[in-house]
């Protein structure tokens, strides 16, 4: 959800009149009554489904809670247990492994596609087609690839056989499962990443390329000396936003686990929390793990906000 919404965050125009003098009349208008009426739904939604659960989540993390009996306060026990839980650390490692492969490949391929589109075409049609995998539910994406990569009947394994290579149990083998899921999500999100980077590239003044061409610079040189440095703020922002999204991988893992059985090789942190909460009903423990994840993502979000501000001054 976070990833998919980045674009508008940036599309929004700067507030023009923030802090500007508002006083045109003798007495400033006071819309107090109207304002609170306008805000009733949003405030209700915020308090009930964001504010209150945040406090509750924090409280649960300090309790032993199984959904049936009332939460019992246990202090920092959940956190102490978490630190000693090899499964928790393993799930963090698995997530890191996933993020590394997914973000690495997705950013590189996205950059390549964006740069090519930027120098070749403005086609909306092409961009729309590249965006299609991002519009499709992750569950569907997972199913498509489980089928394409099926060890016996999958199309990809037919190809491998035709090439004289052996078949691979992509989702079944513990060594292959996580990289496969990472690449499946790279397939789903590369077009989207490319479009964001492409939009950033459109902001680079065209005359830079024109004068570089007059000076005899080749495409690679232009990419290195103009595109990359000028794109840096956008690139950094897209990277952090993608990272935040990537850490929260769940759907694809859940589908694969449902299809070929769950294994520790693909138990990412979100899935760990999900299992603790809804399979073992360790609500308190799950909340402690969720809070830990929230802290990790919080650090990334702070970085994101800083970049957002930095990019403003850079490209303004």
């Amino acid at each position: 959800m976070r990833t998919m919404r980045t674009e508008e965050r940036s599309q929004v125009a700067e507030p023009r009149d923030a802090g500007a003098p508002r006083r045109r009349r003798a007495r400033p208008r006071d819309d107090r009554r109207a304002a609170w009426i306008f805000l009733i739904p949003a405030i209700a939604g915020f308090v009930i489904f964001y504010g209150y659960p945040t406090v509750r989540g924090f409280w649960y993390s300090l309790t032993d809670y199984n959904l049936l009996t009332d939460p019992a306060y246990v202090g920092g026990d959940n956190y102490a247990q978490l630190v000693r839980d090899p499964q928790f650390w393993h799930s963090l490692t698995v997530t890191g492994y996933y993020v590394l492969i997914n973000i690495g490949s997705q950013m590189l391929l996205g950059l390549l596609l964006a740069a090519l589109m930027h120098r070749l075409t403005r086609s909306v049609m092409l961009r729309a087609m590249l965006l299609l995998p991002w519009l499709v539910p992750n569950v569907t994406v997972g199913l498509l690839w489980i089928w394409l990569l099926d060890a016996d009947l999958g199309f990809v394994n037919h190809l491998l056989k035709a090439l004289g290579l052996g078949t691979v149990g992509f989702f079944v083998s513990p060594d292959w499962a996580m990289p496969t899921i990472a690449m499946v999500n790279t397939w789903a999100y590369t077009g989207y990443t490319a479009l964001l980077l492409y939009a950033g590239m459109l902001q680079i003044p065209q005359h830079l390329y024109e004068s570089a061409a007059i000076d005899g610079a080749g495409e690679l040189r232009m990419f290195r000396s103009i595109t990359l440095p000028m794109l840096r703020p956008v690139l950094a922002l897209v990277l952090v936003v993608s990272l935040i999204g990537s850490f929260q991988i769940f759907d694809t893992v859940a589908v694969v686990a449902g299809g070929s059985g769950e294994s520790s090789a693909i138990r990412v942190i979100y899935y760990f929390i999900y299992q603790q909460a809804f399979k073992y009903f360790h609500m308190g423990y799950a909340s402690a793990a969720a809070l830990t994840l929230a802290l990790i993502l919080g650090v990334l979000t702070v970085v994101q906000m800083r970049l957002l501000r930095a990019s403003r001054s850079d490209l303004a």
Binding site: Y52, R56, Y60, A294
Partner: peptide
Amino acid sequence: IMIAALMVPPIFTLLPNFVL
């Protein structure tokens, strides 16, 4: 205060929201 909620990842509020 409302915007600060952007910092809270969905999984964190999801558990209490489910309980609610």
